[in-house]
Amino acid sequence: SNREKAKQAFKELLRDKAVPSNASWEQAMKMVVTDPRYSALPKLSEKKQAFNAYKAQRE
């Protein structure tokens, strides 16, 4: 689905920018907000969900 693709793109973005798994949401956003993939997930709640999944995978 498109939403799954968007989630993957967002997680790839976090990986590409080397966002550490112990980063806070605010720290992570400063690192990725300028990338076009930041807008892949329109809802903030979805971004946070993908971010938390990313962190869980990295730990």
Rank of each mutant, 00 (worst) to 15 (best):
V19H: 00
K55I: 11
S24D: 06
L14C: 04
A50C: 13
P42H: 04
A28H: 02
K48C: 00
A50Q: 09
R58D: 08
L13I: 00
A18W: 04
A28G: 04
W25N: 14
M31V: 07
Q27V: 07
A40L: 13
Q57E: 15
R58W: 14
V19R: 02
Y38C: 06
K17F: 10
K30S: 10
Q8P: 05
S1G: 14
D16P: 00
Q49L: 06
R15M: 15
A28M: 02
A23C: 09
L13R: 04
E59F: 03
K43T: 15
A56Q: 14
V19G: 04
A53N: 12
A6S: 10
R15L: 11
M31H: 09
P20N: 02
P36R: 09
S24K: 09
K11V: 15
A56S: 13
S21K: 15
A23H: 02
S21C: 13
R3Y: 03
Q57T: 10
V19C: 02
S45E: 13
Q27H: 12
A9Y: 05
A56W: 08
Q49I: 07
A18T: 08
Q57D: 15
A23I: 11
A23T: 04
L14W: 00
A53P: 04
S39M: 12
Q8T: 12
R3I: 14
F51G: 08
V33G: 14
N2Y: 00
V32R: 02
D35H: 01
Q57N: 10
K17R: 11
Y38W: 12
K55H: 08
R15C: 10
A9K: 09
E46A: 04
S1A: 13
A18M: 11
K11E: 13
V32C: 11
F10S: 08
L44D: 08
V19K: 01
A9L: 12
R3P: 14
V19S: 03
L13F: 01
D35V: 00
K47I: 00
K48V: 12
A53S: 12
S21P: 10
E46Q: 10
K17S: 06
Y54L: 12
R3T: 12
K17T: 05
Q49V: 09
F10H: 11
N52W: 05
L44M: 12
A9P: 03
P42Y: 05
R15A: 13
D16H: 00
E4F: 07
L13A: 07
K5Y: 10
E12R: 02
S1P: 04
D16Q: 05
P20G: 05
M31G: 09
A56T: 11
R15P: 02
W25Y: 10
Y38T: 11
A18P: 02
K55F: 01
E59R: 10
L14E: 07
V19A: 02
K11C: 14
K47Y: 03
S24T: 15
E4R: 04
V33E: 15
Q57A: 14
R37N: 02
K30H: 06
K7C: 08
Y38G: 05
K17D: 01
K55W: 00
A56H: 11
L44F: 03
A23G: 04
E26C: 03
K7Q: 14
E26D: 13
R3H: 08
D16M: 00
A50Y: 00
K5A: 10
P36G: 05
S39A: 13
R37F: 00
E4S: 10
R58Y: 15
Q57P: 08
Y38D: 07
S39Q: 10
M31C: 05
Q49W: 02
K47F: 07
S21F: 14
